[in-house]
């Protein structure tokens, strides 16, 4: 067994607001070895992006890491100067393609500053940038470098963002909803591109998505997040073919499947407000298989089966004497 490249241990992240605290990530743990890829799926507002920003050391100023560790290649990046981590150990492929780059700077300026942050002049930076762009399939990198973001199509921008994220050879890359803002016709292309860089650079990848359908083609492992926690994690294929957690089951039923005329079932209700305290299983109010008081009062513990972890009372996670206590 290889040493893990990325270890996240009991990570808790909150946002401090004027009148309340939003607990966006409430204790997340997982491990990935070099080159492995993880999909994080879940509805919006579950803390997926927050987890991604925490790992890429780019949380907004009002966020606080309450607890936990993030180790990259054995280094605790939360205790290291961010300047030596960002872009070099961990990098981010951001969510909103349209707002991801400054409208007043050319792509070349951004590359020059990103590559310049490890030393090296403007000309050599642009040379490197043009090589990276070429390797990602741009036939005329010089033109791209001279362009402003609004002069490029969504698909091109997506590739530029990927190029920027990998330009300092990070060990871990996090892609936040890489397919959500591009045309359906381009999804395949983006998925292929991420797979290509993953193999070519043997980089450990985390892909955040609310589209559980793309998980098997993109990732070895899939983690389902709900209300700031992982509720189920395991090998992508088996997790999607045979989901255990009721939430995972409902997520996979809610996706449209080409050629199959099954009725789409959106999940009724909304995820809980992370700004208020949560008691018991956070999914209980929406769960079709809810088992009375137990689910409402006791937080489910981990239950392991066949390389899978699931946090649900259906599988006997919690012992019954905790209720009476």
């Amino acid at each position: 067994m290889k040493d893990p490249m990325l270890v996240v241990k009991n990570l808790k992240v909150s946002y401090k607001l004027k009148d309340r605290v939003v607990r966006a990530v409430r204790g997340v743990s997982f491990k990935l070895v070099e080159g492995q890829s993880l999909c994080i799926v879940g509805e919006s507002g579950c803390g997926k992006s927050t987890l991604g920003y925490a790992i890429s050391v780019s949380l907004p100023p009002n966020a606080v890491i309450e607890e936990g560790e993030i180790l990259v290649n054995g280094v605790n990046i939360l205790k290291t100067d961010p300047v030596t981590v960002r872009g070099k150990l961990v990098s981010l492929i951001p969510q909103d393609v349209g707002a991801a780059l400054s409208p007043l700077n050319t792509i070349g300026e951004v590359f020059a500053d990103v590559l310049g942050s490890i030393g090296g002049g403007r000309d050599s930076s642009l040379k490197v940038a043009s090589d990276i762009l070429k390797s990602l399939g741009f036939s005329d990198p010089q033109r791209i470098l001279k362009s402003y973001p609004h002069e490029l199509s969504g698909g091109m921008l997506q590739r530029v963002l990927i190029a920027l994220a990998i330009s300092l050879n990070p060990k871990v890359i996090i892609a936040d909803e890489p397919t959500s803002m591009v045309d359906a016709s381009l999804r395949r292309e983006v998925v292929d591109l991420i797979n290509t860089i993953r193999y070519n650079y043997s980089v450990t990848t985390i892909i955040i998505t609310h589209d559980i359908a793309i998980a098997p083609s993109l990732c070895d492992i899939t983690a389902v997040m709900y209300a700031g926690k992982i509720v189920e994690i395991g090998p992508s294929k088996s997790l999607i073919e045979k989901p255990l957690h009721p939430y995972t089951k409902m997520l996979s039923k809610s996706i449209p499947r080409i050629m199959k005329l099954v009725e789409l079932k959106p999940i009724p209700g909304l995820p809980p407000d992370l700004g208020s305290p949560i008691k018991g299983c956070p999914f209980a109010p929406r769960c079709p298989d809810v088992v009375g008081d137990l689910c409402y009062n006791v937080e489910p513990e981990e239950y392991r089966a066949g390389g899978r972890s699931v946090y649900c009372h259906l599988y006997g996670g919690a012992s019954h004497d905790t209720i009476s206590a």
Partner: peptide, 11 residues
């Protein structure tokens, strides 16, 4: 967003 992104790329 672009400020956060630049930071995350090491600028």
């Amino acid at each position: 967003d672009f400020v956060r992104n630049l930071r995350s790329w090491g600028v």
